[in-house]
């Protein structure tokens, strides 16, 4: 079964000032599939993730060369509306970061910012987003209490619901379960399996077991370079590259 390409980078370089953090990265991300980015700390995987929705633009002195495509269009082309790009590419971070507002307002926030005022539409979208993030049943009785009262795992699923509310096409996840206990982690991983039916997911993870469990494809980064990308099953059972093998078998990193 072949999958259409939703996003892709071609010969992408990235610089923090004079330091080149990414070198010649070409990857294709297939629609409705999960791609995991793995590699030791400092290998560039999170930097690369942030190139996909131009989050690095927010850091002074950074520079991108090469191309990053979403549906075949270069997102770094002049005239691209970055705000609308980020609406299409949602992001979930390592540490749950709910706003100090009610559960309802956290999810409704993105809708309000995008100018939606229809109360019924907002309520409906909030409910659907919370259901999509597998959190609805746990919070439906306390929608108007503070989101800060939720557990860490619930807060992270709330952040996922908040990302889903604006109906993105791609979901970027930067170590979304690294601050969670095993049960909460499992819920997030189950959720990723469900979410890929609707979205294209790209996840950075330090846990190779997690990459193996949740992803269809895996890309291994080392020192700013893409060493190997391929089907997760192959990469974790019979990688083509010796460096990949040494990393996933724990011989360095």
């Amino acid at each position: 079964m072949t999958h259409a390409i939703k996003a892709a980078s071609k010969n992408l370089d990235f610089f923090y000032g004079d330091f080149q953090a990414l070198e010649d990265i070409s990857i294709e991300f297939e629609r409705n599939r999960v791609t995991a980015l793995i590699g030791p700390s400092g290998c560039g995987k999170s930097t690369y993730l942030r190139c996909i929705n131009r989050m690095n633009d927010l850091i002074d002195g950074t520079r991108v060369q090469g191309d990053m495509f979403l549906d075949g269009e270069d997102i770094y082309a002049p005239g691209v509306d970055v705000v609308s790009l980020r609406r299409r590419i949602g992001m979930v971070f390592q540490k749950p970061n709910p706003f100090p507002k009610t559960i309802f307002e956290n999810v409704a926030y993105g809708l309000r910012v995008n100018g939606i005022k229809d109360k019924q539409l907002i309520e409906q979208t909030v409910e659907e987003s919370l259901k999509g993030a597998a959190l609805w049943d746990e919070v439906k009785e306390r929608m108007h209490t503070s989101a800060l009262g939720l557990s860490g795992g619930q807060q992270q699923r709330l952040c996922i619901a908040r990302a889903l509310a604006i109906e993105p096409e791609v979901l970027l996840m930067d170590e979304p379960a690294s601050a969670l206990d095993p049960i909460a982690t499992q819920k997030i991983e189950d959720l990723i399996h469900e979410l890929k039916k609707e979205f294209t997911i790209i996840i950075v993870t330090h846990s190779m077991q997690q990459a193996a469990r949740v992803s269809d494809r895996t890309a291994f980064f080392y020192m700013g370079k893409l060493i190997e990308v391929g089907d997760t099953k192959t990469l974790f059972t019979n990688p083509a590259n010796k460096q990949t093998e040494d990393y996933i078998t724990g011989r360095f990193g």
Binding site: F236, T237, N238, T244, E245, I248, T249
Partner: peptide, 9 residues
């Protein structure tokens, strides 16, 4: 030890 790749094989 949850081995991978050649270790798993």
């Amino acid at each position: 030890d949850q081995p991978m790749a050649v270790d798993l094989r």
